[in-house]
């Protein structure tokens, strides 16, 4: 592959393998959109079927949800800054901003875990009603994606520290940045259609 390596442009796009990997990842993201759409559809259909469990309007609190949203939005921004540094060839800048991104991601996860524990103490668990099953599956699947993303990024940070910026490591980092921004896209829809609408309707 290195025989066809380009001499200019961002590192991650210089090899055929890099370009194909990025293309493949966009296909994966499209599949993720469809995966989450089934969960959103389930949630929308089961909306209001709370049986004897608490209704969402009683449990959802604007404060914590806004904090989670801002944490994730900011982490998406810092992830973009990390890629900005990567393209300027700064490994140090890339790693610093990537670590900030991960800390924000961990903060988000912490709040989400706290939220789930709090809800289950209030009597809304995965088993309590069709609505809460759909809620935990949707929000939980997103949370699992964030968790996986954090683990993935930690492994990449180790690679970056060992190997520095090459066509391979920069492609890997670029792909995880796409993944991270994508999680934010999904969260925006969860924030809007689950939390905000849950507090309005």
């Amino acid at each position: 592959m290195s025989a066809h390596e380009l001499k200019s442009g961002p590192l991650e796009y210089r090899t055929q393998e890099g370009r194909m990997s990025i293309l493949g990842f966009w296909i994966f993201l499209a599949a993720e959109v469809v995966l989450f759409s089934t969960l959103f559809a389930t949630y929308a259909v089961l909306y209001g079927r709370t049986a004897d469990a608490p209704v969402p309007g009683e449990l959802f609190e604007p404060g914590i949800v806004l904090v989670m949203t801002f944490l994730l939005l900011t982490s998406s921004f810092t992830c973009g800054i990390a890629i900005h540094h990567m393209r300027r060839g700064s490994v140090k800048g890339l790693m610093t901003w990537l670590i900030i991104t991960l800390i924000l991601g961990l903060g988000f996860l912490g709040f989400e875990i706290y939220e789930f524990v709090h809800y289950s103490h209030e009597g809304a668990t995965l088993q309590s009603s069709a609505f809460w099953s759909a809620f935990y599956t949707l929000a939980g699947t997103h949370g699992v994606h964030v968790t996986l993303g954090i683990g993935w990024a930690v492994l990449l940070l180790i690679q970056l520290a060992k190997r520095g910026l090459t066509t391979v490591t920069s492609r890997k980092v670029f792909i995880i940045s796409l993944y991270w921004h994508f999680l934010d896209v999904i969260w925006i829809f969860i924030f809007t259609s689950v939390y905000l609408i849950g507090m309005v309707v």
Partner: peptide
Amino acid sequence: NMMFHGFVLAAIIVAGSL
């Protein structure tokens, strides 16, 4: 292309289910 088709499918799945 990927995002457009992904979101079209998502819209059909959500609206169709509802």
